[in-house]
C-alpha cells in the first residue's frame, strides 16, 4: 500500500507554477505551425529527447507542447506549435523577446541509450516530425553512436512540410538516408507522392537490428506499424509517442489517462508492445 507523508508533502514546491522564459526567435513554418527557440530566464531546462513542457501564455492559459529540439543543441530549447486552441492561436502573435511561462519538462524519454549501436528508422507524419526531431537531432549529433539511420517524412501537401531546410540538409548527407513524401503534390513538387507507407518499398531494413520510431496521427501510426512488423521489426523495438491532452503533467488531473496509465508520467513514449496491451492507446 502506498504510504504518504502528508506534512512533508504540504511543504513541497507547487508543481503548477510556471517558470519564466524568453523567446529567442520565432518563425511561421506553415500556415498553422509556428516554431520557437526559447530560453529559461533562470536555470536552463534540463530535458531529454521525447519530453514535453506546459507552455503558459499569461492571461490566456496553458497548453502541453512536445519539445522538438535535442539537448545537444545547447541550453535553449525549441517548440513547434500548431494553432488549434486558445493558447496556441495566441502564440501566433508571439515573437523574439516575448515572455512565456514554462512548466516541466514532463514525461519519459525516447530510449536513446538502449538504441546505441543499432539501426534507427524514423517515420514521422505531419506534426509528428516535431517530437521525432528531438531524437533525430540527438542521433545526428551523436552520429557515431548509432548504426544506419533512415528518416521517412510524410505530409498531406508540400505547404505543410515542417523543417524544410533541415529535410534538405539531411537529404544531402551521405550518412543518413532521408525520404520525403506528400499525399497531394503541387506543381512544383518533384519528390515522392503517396502515403508514407509507400516509402517502405524504397528502403532496406535489417529488421533484427532496427529500432523504428513512429510518430504521427493514429491512422498513419496503425499502417506504419503494420509495415514495420511486416519487415520483421520486433514489437518492443517499435517506439511511438502518444498524443493526449496533459493538463497537469504530474499524474493528477486524469485527462491523459489510458486505462491505468498516466501518459504524462509513464509516457508519452511507449513501445508498440505496450500500446497494444493498453488497448485504448491508438
Amino acid at each position: 500500500m502506498t504510504q504518504i507523508d502528508i506534512h512533508k508533502g504540504a511543504e513541497a514546491e507547487s508543481p503548477y507554477v510556471p517558470k519564466m522564459a524568453r523567446i529567442l526567435s520565432a518563425e511561421q513554418m506553415t500556415e498553422t505551425e509556428r516554431f520557437f527557440r526559447i530560453e529559461m530566464e533562470e536555470a536552463p531546462l534540463a530535458y531529454q529527447p521525447g519530453q514535453f513542457v506546459g507552455v503558459t501564455v499569461f492571461g490566456v492559459g496553458e497548453a502541453p507542447i512536445s519539445i522538438c529540439s535535442s539537448p545537444t543543441q545547447g541550453d535553449a530549447f525549441e517548440l513547434t506549435v500548431r494553432s488549434v486552441g486558445l493558447v496556441t492561436n495566441k502564440l501566433k502573435e508571439f515573437g523574439e523577446g516575448d515572455r512565456l511561462g514554462i512548466r516541466g519538462p514532463f514525461g519519459n524519454t525516447f530510449p536513446y541509450e538502449e538504441m546505441k549501436g543499432k539501426d534507427v528508422l524514423f517515420v514521422a507524419g505531419g506534426l509528428g516530425l516535431a517530437p521525432t526531431r528531438s531524437l533525430i537531432r540527438y542521433v545526428l549529433d551523436n552520429r557515431g553512436d548509432y548504426h544506419k539511420v533512415t528518416i521517412l517524412v510524410g505530409a498531406r501537401d508540400p505547404s505543410l512540410l515542417l523543417f524544410r531546410d533541415e529535410l534538405e540538409a539531411w537529404t544531402g548527407r551521405d550518412d543518413v538516408e532521408t525520404l520525403v513524401t506528400v499525399d497531394r503534390p503541387d506543381k512544383a513538387w518533384s519528390g515522392n507522392v503517396g502515403v508514407i507507407t509507400r516509402l517502405f518499398a524504397k528502403i532496406q531494413l535489417d529488421a533484427a537490428a532496427t529500432y523504428a520510431v513512429i510518430v504521427g496521427p493514429p491512422v498513419m501510426f496503425k499502417f506504419t506499424v503494420l509495415e514495420a512488423l511486416a519487415e520483421g521489426v520486433p514489437e518492443n523495438r517499435i517506439i511511438c509517442s502518444l498524443e493526449r491532452h496533459m493538463k497537469c503533467g504530474v499524474g493528477k488531473c486524469g485527462h491523459c489517462q489510458i486505462r491505468g496509465v498516466y501518459v504524462c508520467r509513464e509516457g508519452p513514449v511507449f513501445t508498440y508492445e505496450q500500446v497494444k496491451r493498453l488497448r485504448e492507446g491508438i
Binding site: T2, I4, D5, I6, H7, K8, G9, A10, E11, A12, E13, S14, P15, Y16, V250, G251, K252, R265
Partner: peptide
C-alpha cells in the same frame, strides 16, 4: 485522496489543507 495527491509528485495545494 491523500494517496492520489501525495504520491509521486506531491500536490501541496491539497496536502496543506489536509495537514491542517
Amino acid at each position: 485522496l491523500d494517496t492520489a495527491f501525495g504520491k509521486d509528485i506531491p500536490d501541496p495545494h491539497y496536502l496543506a489543507r489536509r495537514a491542517d
